Amino acid sequence: MFVHVVAIFLLLLLLSNPFIVRINANFEGDALYAFRIAVKDPNNVLNSWDPTLVDPCTWFHVTCDHHNRVTRLDLGHAKLSGHLVPQLGSLQNLEFLELYKNELVGPIPKELGGLKNLVSLGLYHNNLTGSIPSSLSNLSNLKFLRLNSNRLSGRIPRELAKLGNLKILDLSNNDLCGTFPTFGSFSKFPEQSFKNNPRLEGPELMGLVRYDKDELCK
C-alpha cells in the first residue's frame, strides 16, 4: 500500500512540476529568443515571442507537434535584419526553417548541420556572406535547399552531394567559385541551380575536381 501511495505522489509531482514537464519547451524557447534579440524587427512580427512564457508553441510563426516540440519556423518576407545565431542548431525537431526574403547578413552557422530532422532550409533572398558550411551534408532528411540570391562565396562543398533525399537545390545568384559536383544527388540538378555565380567555372569534369581552379577559389 505504501509503495502505491509513493508512486502516485511521484506521478502527481511530475505532472505538476512545470520545470520537469516544460524543460524541452524552455530550451527551445531560449534558442528562438536568442534569434529574436539578434535581429531587428521593424514590423514587430516577433512581438509575441515573450521569454517569460515557458511554451514557445504559443508564439506566432512557430509551429509545434503534439509533443510541444518546435517543428517549423516560418518568417519569410518579414523584413528582419541582423544575423543568424548558432542556437538555431539546437532545435532538434525542426523540419522547416524558412527565413527567405529578409535582410539577414553574416554567415550561415555551421550548427545548422545539427538539425537532423530538417526537410526544408529556405534562406534565399538575403545578404548572407561567407561559405556554405559543409556540415549541411549531415541533413540526411533535407529535400529543399534554397540559398540563392545571397552573397555567399567560396567553393560548393562536395559533401553536399551525399544528400540523397534532396529534390530541389538552388545556389544561383551568389559569388561561389571553383566547380560544382556532378555526382551523387547533384547529378540530377541542372546548371540553372548554379547560374549567376561569376566565379563558378562550371561542372566537374568526369566527376573530378578541377584542382587548379579550386586552389584559386577563396
Rank of each mutant, 00 (worst) to 15 (best):
F2K: 15
V5E: 11
F9Y: 13
F9P: 00
L10H: 07
L10T: 05
L15W: 00
S16G: 09
S16T: 01
S16M: 00
F19N: 00
I20E: 09
I20Q: 14
F27G: 02
A31Y: 00
F35K: 06
V39C: 10
S48A: 13
W49K: 13
P56G: 00
P56T: 03
C57F: 06
T58E: 07
V62A: 02
T63S: 12
C64Y: 03
H66Q: 12
N68K: 15
V70Y: 04
L75M: 07
H77M: 08
L80A: 04
G82H: 01
H83P: 00
Q87C: 13
G89L: 07
Q92F: 01
Q92Y: 00
E95H: 14
L99R: 06
E103S: 14
G106K: 05
I108W: 04
P109A: 07
G113R: 08
G114C: 06
K116V: 10
L118R: 06
Y124P: 12
I132H: 05
S134C: 12
S135Q: 05
L139E: 03
L139A: 05
S140C: 02
N141Y: 03
K143R: 15
N148E: 12
R158V: 07
D170P: 13
L171M: 12
N173F: 13
L176Y: 04
L176Q: 09
G178Y: 04
P190M: 04
F194L: 14
F194K: 15
F194Y: 15
N196W: 05
L200N: 11
E201R: 15
V209H: 03
R210Q: 13
D212T: 09
E215F: 01
E215L: 13
